[in-house]
Design a protein around this nucleic acid. Sequence first.
DNA 1: ACATCAACCAAGCAAGCGCTAGTGTAAACC
DNA 2: GGTTTACACTAGCGCTTGCTTGGTTGATGT
Lengths: 201, 201
Amino acid sequence: MNVVNESPRRKELTRLAAQLFVQEGFDRTTVRMLAQEMGIKSGSLFHHFRDKQEILAAVIEEGTQNALALARQALEECGDSADERLHAMARAHLQTLLTDRNAHVVALYEWRRLDAASRDHLSHLRDAYEELWEQVIDEALEAGLIHGDRFLVSRFVMGALNWTVRWYDPEGARKPEDLAHELVAMITTSAHTPPGQSTKV
Amino acid sequence: MNVVNESPRRKELTRLAAQLFVQEGFDRTTVRMLAQEMGIKSGSLFHHFRDKQEILAAVIEEGTQNALALARQALEECGDSADERLHAMARAHLQTLLTDRNAHVVALYEWRRLDAASRDHLSHLRDAYEELWEQVIDEALEAGLIHGDRFLVSRFVMGALNWTVRWYDPEGARKPEDLAHELVAMITTSAHTPPGQSTKV
DNA sequence: ACATCAACCAAGCAAGCGCTAGTGTAAACC
DNA sequence: GGTTTACACTAGCGCTTGCTTGGTTGATGT
């Protein structure tokens, strides 16, 4: 009988699956490809996961949990000002995208391949994350740091950030902190840049 | 022998394919499903398209050509000021996403399913479109309307805009023009709103 | 020494896949 | 009036898919 627990082996397999899902897409990744990447035979795969869908759900859950934890930690560690909190969220978001890239690309691209049950469960996680953003943006609005409609601004910001997975090159000169700073600078009302740091990257 | 021309029938079939690709994803959409939606049998499909890949390429080409044409037209018809041109581009982009939604969702999600030849051809089209954006953003930067790095700003803006396909509800109260206005307001340095128009939607 | 159990393998089934081959037919063209 | 052309059909081939079944292995606890 196959198991559904959280064994370390299963976590390792999930990591490998994420990589393959990014390379080939979920539908084009066969259980045989997954098994080969993991160094086992296709049949053995179903000892760790009930079916193929469950692998996808595991990949996305991993990434989302990490993102949520990292964002919460960043908010706790930073200062109280709206500006600092906005920066902290943007930095955390981009750092997660960088370190956990595979899982997040899968979450963005293959979300609709999830079955109803998994989608329902995971959308709660995602909502919790997005609420963090809306909260920070609310604070920035009240502080007069940014302006506009609460809902629209948060969507625009998350769109800009999530889109980075399509063009950002981790090997390039730009660091996640630079992107975060540039984004916040773009949307804040005052155009000032902190002294000693250039806006152009 | 099957044909590769641009018959009106083929265009209609392409439109139907786009809808199915959005609903099910490219890989999960079988030629039998496509044929049924078109009211023919699966074999007849290959009279209009060489293979399944070609249908995908046709869908994406349609959408991209329309977007490019609409953006060019919008830039010709609007005024010369950087502000007007920025608004015109944002409006055109969102209107295309709305009217040609299916094709654009497919282009965003299924791009990597294209074979090398189609991807090469279509990426030139897409580059032409993105160059329009970078040009308009350059003008806005020179005019002092926005600030920041040319490359990063254009990526952030396109990310925010493209992300709209994930949450925008055409039946809702917000119109594409409202979104365009709000986005431009968010990224321009001065927080002023044109008289008689509210920022809150 | 014996039982347990997670982890794996070999073999293969039933279903579905993209696509082809050969044919029919009604309208369009010379 | 005969030929061509566009579009559709039936039938099915060869292959791949996710997943199942029944059995083996080696480590662990008693």
